[in-house]
Design a protein around this nucleic acid. Structure first.
Lengths: 128, 128, 128, 128
DNA sequence: GTGGTCTAGACCACG
DNA sequence: GTGGTCTAGACCACC
């Protein structure tokens, strides 16, 4: 499992962890019933408090991404795993939250499309 | 001037006000040297605290959207008015903040494009 | 608002608080948009940690009983208020959790009914 | 002897085992001086740790449901066997633990009675 | 004043 | 070893 946190972002640490793990579950990178690393292990690795990791895991449990068994560990739920449907619903939800902002700026659909093309090609050049 | 605030959103009130006024300045809806309504008037009309409005106006001043003359009022800066350049920069910045999320979900550029087409056509049906 | 906690019970404090507040919302004792006492006030009154109360309030928010506004307070959601439907669903859920236990003991329906009659008349004598 | 454990429940494994064996003793399904299967046998059959089964057996011994002879095995106590009195006391105790919850919800005795009728008829349709 | 986030550290229950 | 609960105390953002 791969988690990167950025202390300089304004986003809470536990939210960053939540987003990355949930995304990996949805993408199928983490199979059903996979045992997540313990909260203590994650806290140690990332150099943050156990409580912060616990909060992220609690959110995952609340949203049915994982189930936790005291004394055993935290495991990936089968229901949310590897679903294209869920991926698209989440992406749409996120996009919708920002639409008002773009419309306030009178950004047309075409402008937005070309911006996306630009940003995707940028990050394509960086990653591979 | 037109401001709508939504108490149920989790976005700070002052940020909602800031975003809407700044957008109206950039779009040219508020011309250079236009005199904004007083802090008290806005607070009264929206039914919120004067302090909250003051904070929004302060942000506008810090970001050079307006200038204030003590005892006179707050006025729109000419430099930021009606600039296509700024509109696009702001939109790009906002989009960039969300790119990691989409890439985590393995959302392809094509999927994102079609989502945008969908959401824009939805809201086109509502507005006009 | 009235909350009683019992440290000797094996039930977590935050769960006790959660149950009592949610019940009062469902019963309509707390009307929609009612502002709950602040977590600090409750913590002080009950002599427990702020964090414990916060956890109870978080559960209430997760289950849509309340909504919280940073800097303002926590308010009762309209949707869960005063619903006979919900009262019965919750009671059924709770009862169902214990049914296996009774059936393991070969407790018949009639025995259970008479037990209930007995316990209700007991507590009727105490309360009024 | 028949034991079913459910890993997805939040009830401790040892408690699930304890409840089921004690109920079978009370019901007379396990006669006095009956020799329970060994801790290791149970652990093996259920695929759980020996320690967990040991804890359940210890609870049974503490509550006088069984007696253990080192090197020989664990045997059902005569005193708790097949007692209607005990069955009812246990059921009453369990019911009492949940009464506050129902009273908080303003569930009347009649509502509770009809809920029980409903749940019992449901499970009657499933079992036989 | 309000809630939000994060910390360090403790003790307990479970396996 | 695991997670569950609770504590005290800190700093921040918001109103």
């Amino acid at each position: 499992m791969n988690i990167v946190i950025n202390n300089k972002l304004n986003k809470p640490l536990y939210e960053q962890i939540y987003e990355q793990i949930s995304a990996q579950i949805i993408n199928g990178d983490l199979p059903p019933d996979y045992c997540l690393p313990s909260i203590r292990a994650v806290a140690l690795e990332l150099g943050i408090s156990v409580i912060t990791v616990k909060k992220a895991y609690e959110m995952l449990e609340n949203n049915k991404f994982i189930y936790t068994r005291a004394g055993k560990g935290c495991f990936v739920q089968a229901t949310k795993s590897s679903s294209n449907e869920i991926r698209r619903v989440l992406a749409e939800e996120r996009l919708r939250q920002n639409l008002d902002y773009f419309r306030n700026l009178n950004i047309t659909q075409d402008e937005l499309q070309s911006l996306i093309t630009k940003l995707y090609s940028e990050s394509d050049n960086k990653k591979p």
